[in-house]
Design a binder for these strands. Structure first.
Length: 945
DNA sequence: CTCCTGGAATCAACA
DNA sequence: GGTGTTGATTCCAGG
């Protein structure tokens, strides 16, 4: 839709572009241009570790903040509502907690166990705040007129990275790719056409104009502007880490572009080793921690490590984060990217941006409030400088257009890997119509494969409920992971803007920390509803992404994604409330979609241990000889129990499968036990794990959903939107926490909520709101850290985070079994309150049900998420699984499931079935989880038990 | 002519 | 080390 829709003036503060330095791209050291691709490739392998990051631990700031908003039009009102489940992500939904609280760091999850920092992306968070400064906004507005006034997300601070593709290394982009990717540009352009740059955000521009010279124009400027600068920096700087990679990168970049990246990549082995190997080489270079952590983390590793996850693990994770972040910073950005960034950067100039940029980008410090400055400096400086050596000056986002209103003080929007609630207070961001479970993503070398569609035809629809203002808002969309770990931007997929006559919804692309974000206007006149018919999915070559320094994820078999929607709602107090919802998982590979069984729904989520009930599975690719395997996993991922369920072949259809719930191994459990099951069509053809909860025998069948992450989600419904209860085939990584604790109902969750709250910190403020304030940032960053967010606040934030994390653990230990939620909260709160973000989140997360993992896993979730590597589910689940299994066999023991143990006990005694109140159960669950986690930590940390 | 798609060839990684 | 399978990526072709 045309910009027209946007009429709204943007006042939003949102917009401030956050400059994102952080984006991974930036972070990543730019590859040396010099290096040839080839070399680069080779280098990858060879790399010794680069040390890159090393330095910075923190550096990476994430830029991920939200992109600025733009205006987009709105889509038409939507329609149907689909329930979504969602993702968990949201913390208690509401979140209230402090802003920071909200965001959990999701990132953590990385397999590494390390905190998931995902790649260290450096995001610059919100410099936005800075931007905010009004100017940008205004600019935007002014400039744009066009732009809808939607409040952009404030953040979008996107830096314009030079490299357009920040998300992907340009180099990577294959020439062809460019097309699609270009689309971005083009898109941008289109965008532009529609809007003039509404946002100044560099982001946009860069892309859009990728062409634009901006980069070109002033490199410097470019830098600054976009955090990209960072990128740029990075690139140049590559140095740090770069070097090794740099070469690689470059090569890759270059090479990549050329044709396939094959190169090195090609050869790399994905297998477990693969990553590592590759990683190591590459990463290693990076020196640091990152690499290592992640690497280690990888599937294989992680299993083994699981145990470690415990508190110590947490700490490690944190550290890792730091490191990662640093790494990320440098590393984070794929080498290629970096290069590109550099390269691009220059070129990147944003077309529009200028205007916006200038203003928008960020006003230089001056604009920003002191606080902001600090942040900036910190972040930027820190990571940028260190890592990237970005010229800060440039950074200044000077350009950011005016974001608007100062209101945004808070600089930053939550990093993309932060877990956010889907609803808070009166607001609820909900996916009314879920996307189809399969969508073949296109490569850059291919033409677009169209927009993601809804299963029933049409397109996904997202709506923000409870928003009564007249100001348009910006809905952000990016491609997130769909594995068991916390939701975070998917390293191998990027959202792709679809334009054309068939597209009714206007959109704008921005890049936040290596992640492309599509900004779509949410207009009051459309009831804050947007039809997502402008979002396609671009597949990045595994080889390109895996070369990134901080990248620990494996692309192979990591083909499931989720559409992640975010909206940043300005609050009266100047804060911004950020909500997030993730769609159901979407299988993006052609082959997998055709061959792998996919469970979209299950008729029953829980049942007494006696089993025997028929459960109907709905999905795809079911065969008569499909097997349904129930598995109980230990926290560390080991399979404690496996049982093949009886299936009714006669009733088997490609889209439905009837299975008989097998009796649980322990008939005497006193509390619900979460297990998993999957459909297997053959050796490598397994569906994602589905959650299932065994209830104590006597317990009335009323299940407590709670156990699963999903459940909460379910319960909460909206919140979780992402996955419908049934649907979620995959575990939502996101925090399963009940989005709104309160809302959710489940008392059990309450803890979470509380936690959240606590975390959120600022009691006063609604949790929901994010603090953009620097503090928040720091926190956020830290937390986000998993991802690369860390960057920004490095130390400070980290510290807090670290602390926080630990505590939780500690606490847990104390009361292993079910500590009252309160405890958790409290525990958390302290930290959180002050800063919270990550720590809190993490902490919370763990507790949160979200853990996708099977029952055993539950608790770990958090940990997993954070550290984790989450054993369970990586995307590569399959691989992992395999690996895991192996590992499991060996490892689990110690970790063992607490539950199991308990169960065993239970077994002994007849089960007095204690029917707990659901709430209680939930609580217990949490508690249990927590306890387990703690135990694990403890054990890992100190074997005490 | 471009955008979408579906299908499949090709190649590398795995088992 | 060889071979078959699986997965990723690139090509082709039709609508």
């Amino acid at each position: 839709m045309p910009s027209t829709s946007f009429p709204v003036p943007s006042k939003f503060p949102l917009g401030p572009p956050a400059a994102v330095c952080g984006s991974g791209e930036t972070l990543r050291p730019a590859p040396l241009a010099g290096d040839t691709m080839k070399a680069a490739e080779e280098e990858h392998y060879s790399y010794s570790t680069p040390s890159i990051n090393s330095g910075l631990p923190l550096s990476a700031p994430h830029s991920s903040l939200p992109a600025q908003c733009h205006d987009l039009q709105t889509s038409t009102p939507g329609i149907s509502a689909a329930p979504s489940t969602n993702h968990p992500s949201g913390y208690g939904g509401a979140v209230d907690g402090g802003p920071s609280g909200y965001f959990l760091s999701s990132g953590n999850t990385r397999p590494n166990g390390a905190p998931a920092l995902e790649s260290p992306r450096i995001e610059i968070t919100s410099y936005l705040g800075l931007h905010h400064g009004t100017s940008q906004f205004f600019h935007d507005v002014e400039v744009e007129d066009v732009l809808p006034s939607c409040k952009r997300s404030p953040s979008t601070a996107t830096l314009h990275l030079p490299s357009l593709e920040a998300y992907r290394d340009p180099s990577c982009l294959s020439p062809a790719s460019s097309l699609s990717s270009r689309s971005c540009n083009s898109e941008a352009s289109s965008y532009e056409s529609n809007y003039s740059y509404p946002y100044a955000s560099p982001q946009t521009s860069p892309w859009q104009s990728p062409c634009v010279s901006p980069k070109t124009t002033d490199p410097e400027e470019a830098f600054p502007r976009s955090l990209g600068a960072c990128h740029l920096l990075s690139s140049p700087r590559h140095s740090p880490s770069t070097s090794p990679r740099a070469s690689v990168t470059e090569e890759s970049w270059l090479g990549a572009r050329g044709s396939r990246p094959t190169s090195p990549c090609n050869k790399r082995k994905y297998s477990l080793n693969g990553r590592q190997s590759s990683c190591s080489p590459h990463h290693s270079p990076t020196p640091s921690p990152h690499g290592s952590p992640r690497v280690s983390v990888t599937e294989d590793t992680w299993l083994g490590n699981t145990t470690q996850y415990t508190s110590s693990a947490i700490v490690a994770a944190i550290n890792a984060l730091t490191t990662d972040s640093s790494l990320d910073m440098g590393d984070g950005v794929p080498v290629k990217s970096r290069k590109t960034a550099l390269e691009h950067a220059p070129s990147v100039a944003l077309k529009v941006e200028p205007a916006g940029e200038d203003l928008g980008t960020t006003p230089p410090t001056s604009d920003f409030p002191p606080e902001e400055f600090t942040f900036q400096h910190l972040r930027k400086g820190t990571f940028c400088e260190q890592y990237l050596s970005v010229p800060q000056a440039p950074y200044q986002w000077a350009k950011p257009k005016s974001l608007s209103p100062t209101s945004y003080m808070s600089p930053s929007l939550p990093a993309l890997d932060w877990q956010l609630p889907s609803h808070s207070g009166p607001y609820e961001l909900r996916i009314e119509v879920q996307p189809k479970s399969h969508h073949r993503a296109h490569y850059e070398t291919e033409g677009s494969r169209g927009a993601v569609k809804a299963s029933a035809g049409g397109h996904p629809i997202v709506q923000l409920h409870g928003y009564l203002e007249n100001e348009p808002l910006t809905l952000q969309l990016f491609i997130g992971t769909a594995d068991d770990r916390l939701l975070r931007p998917h390293a191998f997929y990027q959202v792709h803007r679809i334009t054309g006559k068939t597209v009714s919804t206007t959109s704008h692309e921005a890049i936040l920390s290596n992640t492309k974000v599509l900004e779509i206007p949410l207009l009051p006149e459309n009831n804050m509803r947007a039809i997502i018919d402008c979002a396609g999915i671009l597949k990045l070559r595994n080889s390109d992404i895996e070369l990134r320094k901080g990248e620990t994820d494996i692309g192979r078999k990591n083909t499931r994604v989720r559409l992640v929607f975010r909206v940043h709602i300005p609050q009266p107090n100047g804060r911004t409330l950020s909500l997030q919802v993730a769609s159901n998982p979407i299988e993006c590979s052609q082959r997998s979609a055709q061959e792998l069984p996919l469970v979209e729904k299950q008729s029953t989520d829980s049942y007494p241990v006696i089993g025997g009930k028929k459960m109907v599975l709905s999905g795809h690719n079911f065969l008569q000889d499909s097997k349904v395997i129930f598995v109980e996993k230990a926290p560390d991922g080991h399979h404690v129990w496996e049982m093949e369920a009886k299936t009714d072949r006669d009733l088997c259809k490609p889209n439905s499968l009837v299975v008989e719930i097998p009796p649980f191994r322990n008939q005497r459990i006193t509390s619900p036990v979460q297990v998993s099951f999957y459909v297997c069509n053959g050796k490598r053809k397994r569906s994602q794990y589905q959650h299932f909860t065994y209830l104590p025998a006597n317990v009335p069948i009323i299940k407590t959903e709670p156990t699963d992450d999903f459940e909460p989600a379910l319960t909460c419904g909206p919140m979780s939107q992402g996955l419908s209860p049934l649907q979620r085939p995959y575990f939502s990584q996101q925090l399963t926490m009940p989005p709104d604790p309160g809302s959710c109902l489940v008392p059990g969750f309450a803890p979470c909520s509380q936690r959240n709250t606590l975390m959120s910190t600022p009691p006063s403020t609604s949790p929901k709101l994010h603090d953009l304030s620097s503090a928040a940032y720091a926190k956020g960053l830290a937390s986000p850290g998993h991802g690369g967010h860390l960057g920004l606040q490095p130390p400070a934030a980290e510290a807090p985070v670290m602390q926080e994390a630990p505590r939780p653990v500690a606490l847990q230990p104390g009361s292993p079994e079910q500590p009252p939620p309160a405890l958790l909260q409290t525990q958390v709160s302290p930290h959180l309150s002050s800063s919270c973000s990550l720590g809190c989140q993490q902490v919370l997360c763990p507790n949160s049900p979200s853990s996708p993992l099977p029952s055993a896993a539950h608790e770990p979730t958090c940990l997993q998420s954070s550290g984790h590597a989450s054993a369970t589910g990586h995307q590569q689940q399959l691989q992992l699984q395999k690996k895991v299994q192996r590992n499991e066999s060996s490892a689990t023991g110690p970790l063992s499931l607490p539950e199991v143990c308990e169960d065993s006990d239970c077994n002994l005694a007849p089960i007095p079935v204690v029917i707990k109140r659901e709430p209680e159960e939930l609580d217990q669950l949490y508690l249990d989880d927590v306890n387990e986690i703690i135990r694990n930590d403890l054990s890992s940390t100190s074997p005490h038990s």
